[in-house]
């Protein structure tokens, strides 16, 4: 499985692409494969603010509902409507078209994982 090097990751299986003060956030291919068929996404409104680690939405597969956790302290600037409309598309392209939200960063915590660290983490069976 691939873990793009330019991204940072959380232990809750979100990825974040940081570009200056802005970032794009999604969930990893590993997590999507664990969840199975994605059927529903509940994402926050543009303008809402979150602390790093805060619950910003939910992702539902046929079998389960999982919470989404914010990798950074930020304000939501854009939500991916096409992902909401066709959540099954996440399994096709988790790292590009399957992004969930774009945010304006206020603070980046020190504990984000690199691609290598995340890979070791998931291979370790978590």
């Amino acid at each position: 499985m691939s873990y793009p090097n330019e991204l940072k990751y959380t232990k809750e299986h979100e990825w974040i692409k940081i570009e200056g003060n802005n970032a794009t956030i999604g969930i990893t291919k590993f997590a999507i494969e664990q969840l199975g068929d994605i059927v529903f996404l509940d994402l926050p409104k543009v303008g809402s603010s979150f602390k790093a680690g805060g619950n910003f939405g939910t992702i539902e597969s046929v079998k389960t509902v999982s919470d989404l956790f914010m990798p950074v302290t930020c304000k939501v600037t854009e939500v991916n409507q096409s992902a909401i409309d066709s959540p099954e598309s996440l399994s096709v392209d988790a790292y590009a078209k399957g992004w969930l939200i774009k945010v304006e960063i206020e603070n980046v915590p020190a504990d984000l994982l690199s691609a290598h660290e995340y890979e070791n983490y998931v291979v370790g069976g978590n």
């Binding site: 809750e12 992702i59 989404l68 978590n126």
Partner: peptide, 8 residues
């Protein structure tokens, strides 16, 4: 999201 692992 979190993925739990159960033992035993």
């Amino acid at each position: 999201m979190s993925i739990s692992v159960n033992e035993k």
